[in-house]
């Protein structure tokens, strides 16, 4: 599949933003674990909302006819893209209620209600993003429960790293070990989830060129791909090919930038060191997650490739 930059920015930024919101709201219900001050909650809430908004705006760049984007809310019953759009838009009034109630010191009931709704909607939005891909049977490597799991874990892990960075600022490095432990666990879980996905993806399990042609008794080879050459829609959208060596290197690059480096940085923080390192590592990790998202598209094979001579997808 063709990796579109707008979709990569969208999923990474909104994943991180909604992940930060989900963690902050969840922690607000668990003051015994990590007690966040009102200032910290507002900082995290606004930053998360801004990142999610930037991501959602980036997603509209992917549309060929954005004038009709408002219609995307109309098929909630069947379309995960529609569900994502509905959840993302419903999130804003709820986040407004939550952050407004915190900012103006309104009653605890309103704060809790806003936080609970924001928590649920942020997680649902990220889950729906994953399900957009996981629901496509025509792309066997996406058609797995691991995909929404990865989207959720990566979103929460990048959100946790953001929260750690915020607390590094507000608490001048003395943020306690609980938030660092939480970030470490989420970063490692996200890496493990992705490793599981890479492992699962190793063997093709989709249809073959034989079932595509209905000729199952002999080997089939493409002789002639008909009109179009290399530049029609099917070619550019589905026939994106990159060699396996580059793909493997990029997987390791993700492991380095998206897992190993942030884990080292957070470990250094917990040792009371590297306060400035975290500001350097945050964009590096988000870039690593961008690499992961690029790979997510580049490695997926649409079954239409079978008609163009691929033996399996």
């Amino acid at each position: 599949m063709h990796p579109a930059i707008s979709v990569i920015c969208f999923t990474v930024l909104s994943g991180a933003g909604f992940g930060l919101i989900a963690l902050t709201t969840a922690l607000a219900f668990m003051p015994g674990l990590i007690a966040l001050s009102n200032g910290e909650i507002l900082f995290a809430g606004v930053l998360g909302t801004v990142l999610a908004t930037l991501g959602l705006l980036a997603s509209t760049l992917h549309l060929a006819n954005p004038r009709n984007a408002w219609r995307a809310f109309s098929r909630f019953r069947t379309s995960w893209l529609s569900r994502e759009a509905v959840f993302a838009v419903l999130f804003y009034p709820c986040a407004g209620l939550w952050l407004g109630a915190v900012a103006f010191g309104l009653s605890a009931v309103l704060i809790d209600l806003g936080a609970a709704l924001s928590l649920v909607l942020s997680l649902l939005t990220v889950f729906s993003t994953g399900m957009i891909y996981a629901s496509l049977r025509a792309i066997p490597r996406w058609n797995s429960p691991l995909v929404p799991l990865n989207y959720l874990l990566l979103g929460l892990a990048s959100g946790a790293l953001l929260l750690t960075t915020i607390l590094t600022v507000t608490r001048a490095g003395a943020m306690g070990s609980d938030v660092l432990m939480l970030t470490l666990v989420l970063l490692v879980l996200a890496g493990l989830g992705k490793a599981l996905y890479f492992l699962w993806m190793g063997t093709p399990q989709g249809p073959s060129i034989n079932t595509a042609l209905g000729m199952t008794r002999g080997q089939a080879r493409l002789l002639e791909s008909g009109q179009g050459g290399r530049s029609n829609f099917l070619d550019t959208e589905f026939r994106f090919q990159i060699d396996g060596k580059t793909l493997r290197r990029l997987r390791w690059l993700f492991g380095l930038l998206g897992v190993a480096l942030p884990v080292v940085a957070v470990a250094l923080l917990s040792a009371g060191d590297g306060f400035f390192l975290i500001f350097l590592i945050l964009p590096v990790t988000l870039f690593g997650y961008g690499v992961e998202r690029w790979l997510f598209f580049a490695e997926a094979q649409h079954v239409v490739n079978l008609f163009y001579g691929a033996q399996r997808v």
Partner: peptide, 27 residues
């Protein structure tokens, strides 16, 4: 054509490559 926003998701969902986005009209 009056409702399509050109998100490509239907083309992704089609296993037969039957749908093609027209760059000139965006649908």
């Amino acid at each position: 054509q009056d409702k399509c926003m050109g998100c490509n998701l239907c083309a992704w969902a089609c296993p037969y490559g039957a749908r093609e986005l027209d760059d000139s009209t965006g649908v």
